[in-house]
């Protein structure tokens, strides 16, 4: 089952990369862009009988490795193959 995991910095955690990109956007004339935050997306296949189980496994993976929960939040989306 294909699973999409989104990892983003928690609110309040400084994102210097986002800030630099925001200033570059502004330099290109995109002054309407603000609060740029950069995260990451992890796609993976999980061998599971149903999407609830896949989501549960993905959450375990996030807690034990994929996200640093001190500074990062994660969200999980199971992409149903049917």
């Amino acid at each position: 089952m294909q699973v999409k995991i989104n990892i983003s910095l928690k609110t309040g955690v400084l994102d210097p990369q986002g800030r630099a990109v925001e200033s570059a956007l502004s330099g290109l004339g995109f002054t309407d862009a603000s609060d740029v935050r950069i995260g990451k997306q992890i796609m993976l296949d999980i061998d599971a009988e149903d999407s609830a189980r896949a989501e549960q496994r993905a959450a375990r993976m996030c807690e034990s490795l994929l996200a640093n929960t001190v500074i990062e939040d994660y969200s999980i989306e199971v992409i149903d193959p049917s």
Binding site: V13, L14, P16, Q17, A20, N68, V70, I71
Partner: peptide, 10 residues
């Protein structure tokens, strides 16, 4: 405890 993030000066 805690974590280390990107240098503030990038």
């Amino acid at each position: 405890p805690g974590t280390l993030v990107r240098n503030s000066g990038l």
